[in-house]
């Protein structure tokens, strides 16, 4: 009986917490979180990486700091591109040894992979994401697709629900998406997991009013 009432109380608490998190997700932060934000940057390969690096290039490096870059294990181009860009920022941000980190992550599904093995690799990718996010406890996750970012965003949201860290989740839809969301964008929008979703075309913003229109990144 006691066990049951404790269970009910915990469930109620969790429900309340979920409502609280959903309510405050996407609400602007009224006071600065601190001097700088531990920033997890998800590089999605190819054009996704190019767009993300355009954003990082203009960010205030002292506020978005330290920076941790994540890319899929099978993507051997993105992290070197990020490293080249970071070297260009100069010594200022590199005074601390772990100021900039580079990590690789398992992908849930490769192009052409069968659905049965996908289940297994998705489980592996999800646990890897949980491990990375719980270990790093970022203040903010920046991503722009494709799928690699979804388990990382879920993990970030879980951190928020558990009260471990208020992880701000920011998604920037790719410039290639003019009228329709990508699957990643749609998941984050429908489940209301992201604090901000930016889109680069007015048509997409009109279809999904909770997004914010920003100009083309290119």
């Amino acid at each position: 009986m006691l066990l049951l009432s404790v269970g009910v109380a915990l469930l109620g608490l969790l429900m309340f917490r979920l409502l609280y998190v959903f309510y405050y997700t996407s609400k602007p932060l009224h006071h600065p979180l601190g001097q700088s934000l531990r920033t997890l940057i998800v590089l999605g390969s190819g054009g996704h990486t190019a767009e993300m690096l355009n954003i990082i290039n203009l960010l205030d490096k002292k506020r978005f700091f330290p920076r941790i870059y994540v890319a899929a294990l099978t993507d051997n181009m993105s992290l070197p591109r990020a490293a080249t860009m970071e070297e260009g920022f100069g010594s200022n941000s590199l005074l601390l040894t772990d100021a900039v980190q580079y990590l690789q992550i398992y992908r849930s599904r490769e192009v052409g992979q069968s659905y049965i093995t996908s289940i297994l690799t998705t489980i592996v990718a999800t646990f890897h994401s949980l491990w990375i996010v719980f270990r790093l406890r970022p203040d903010i996750i920046l991503c722009n697709g494709p799928g690699t970012c979804i388990p990382l965003c879920f993990s970030g949201f879980l951190l928020k629900v558990l009260g471990i860290r208020w992880v701000v989740i920011v998604y920037v839809e790719s410039i290639a998406r003019v009228r329709r969301f990508s699957l990643s964008g749609l998941i984050l929008y429908k489940l209301r997991l992201a604090d901000r979703i930016y889109v680069q075309w007015t048509k997409l913003h009109e279809m999904y009013p909770r997004t914010e229109f920003v100009n083309r990144l290119m």
Binding site: P28, L29, H30, H31, P32, L33, L37, E51, N54, I55, N57, L58, L59, D60, R63, I140, V168, V170, V172, D195, R196, Y198, E212, V214, N215, R216, L217, M218
Partner: peptide, 18 residues
């Protein structure tokens, strides 16, 4: 006309309270 990420960066900074 080439564009850049300044609109995202400005919006994000104000969202974060910077």
């Amino acid at each position: 006309e080439p564009s850049d990420a300044s609109a995202v960066v400005t919006s994000l900074s104000s969202f974060l309270g910077f």
